[in-house]
Structure formats: structure tokens, C-alpha cells
Amino acid sequence: MKALTVQQPWAWAIFHGKRVENRTQLWSYRGPLAIHAGARWSDRGEDSFLVRSAFREHNRWWDGRTTLPRDPFEMGAIIGVVDLVDVHPDGKRCCPPWGESGYVEHGGRERRRITHLVLENPRALAEPIPCKGALGLWNVPTDIVETINAAVIP
């Protein structure tokens, strides 16, 4: 099984309405994809109107004006599985509202071109599986694949 490490709170959002992951690479892989919540927090994700709206919708206790509480966000673990059904370059905002056309990454000056990873059928795990992540598309260790398969309800 392939996996993708996604910083929080973006990883959480994938299981709460986000159906496009924005990357800079084109991949030929299609199929099941484990979503690994990385160990780093994304300030850009925390500031995202879409993430904040989704969090408020699923957590009515949050007032929406303060910073996102970090407690509900698992980090350093596989949190679920999706189906990667398409990968394509951005086509003039073809995948609203989550599909981006470009962004400046980690304080740089260069605006990066974006590839959309189209995700379907999100299946969150009841219990996150601690696991070390990696950059890019990576292979989940066999023992963890078995745990994921046993835990995911199709």
C-alpha cells in the first residue's frame, strides 16, 4: 500500500470534506492511499478558511475566532485510507474549493505550480496507527498494512 504524509490540519480535513490534495509532482499511481498525519503542523493550514470552516462544522464547541486547538489532531500516525482516483495539473481552478492553482511554500518566494490529487472514499481509522512518515509517495511497512486492512471498514 502507498502512503502520503500530510501536515495537520490538512490531513484531518481529508476526512472531513477535503477531496483534493495539492502537490507539485505528477504521479502515475492510482489506488488505495494511506494518509499519514505528519509530525509538523501547517500554519497555512491553520489559517485556511476552508479548514477552519470544516473544523467549526464538526466541532460546534469551537468558537471559530481563536486558533485551532491542537489536541484533536493526531500527528505522526496513519489516520485513514482514501482512494487516489486522479492526478492532474491544475486547470484554471478545476477542483474547487480545495484545489489550488499555486502557492508559496515555507516562506520562499517562488510560486509553485500545483498538481491535484483527487481523493475519494475516505475511511478514517478508529485508532491512529503510529508510524514514521516520508516525503513523496512511500510504501507502508507490511505489518502496518495488515493492521490498516484489519481496521478499515469498506
Rank of each mutant, 00 (worst) to 15 (best):
R112G: 00
P72M: 12
D143M: 05
Q25N: 07
D90Y: 05
A151W: 05
A13D: 12
V87K: 00
L26M: 13
D86H: 11
L117F: 15
Q7A: 12
R60C: 05
A34Y: 06
E46R: 10
C94V: 06
Q25I: 11
V152N: 02
L33F: 09
H58L: 05
F15M: 07
I114P: 00
Q25T: 09
A54Q: 14
A124L: 15
E21D: 10
P89N: 02
N22L: 09
T147N: 01
G107L: 04
L33Q: 07
I148D: 00
E120C: 07
I129T: 05
K92S: 12
W27V: 15
A34Q: 01
A11R: 00
R30A: 09
S48Y: 10
W62N: 06
H106W: 09
P122M: 11
V85R: 09
I35F: 05
R23G: 06
W62D: 04
V140Y: 05
T24M: 02
P9R: 01
H16W: 06
F49P: 01
R112P: 00
K18Y: 04
R23L: 07
I78Y: 08
E105Q: 11
T142A: 15
R40A: 14
R40Y: 07
S48P: 05
W98T: 01
I129V: 14
P69A: 07
V81S: 02
I78L: 15
G31S: 08
I114C: 12
F73Q: 12
E100R: 13
D63Q: 03
N149I: 01
G17F: 01
A37T: 12
H36I: 11
W10P: 00
A34N: 04
R123A: 14
H36L: 09
L137P: 02
G38R: 07
N121A: 15
K18L: 02
M75H: 13
L50A: 08
D90R: 01
W10Q: 00
A11M: 10
E120Q: 15
D63L: 06
P69G: 09
L119C: 07
A39P: 03
W138C: 01
R44D: 13
A150T: 10
I78D: 00
M75V: 13
R113I: 02
R56P: 00
T67M: 13
L50D: 07
L117G: 09
G17I: 04
K18F: 02
G133M: 01
V152Y: 03
T142I: 14
V20K: 03
E105A: 08
N59M: 06
S53H: 08
R65W: 02
G133E: 04
R23S: 04
V140W: 05
I153M: 05
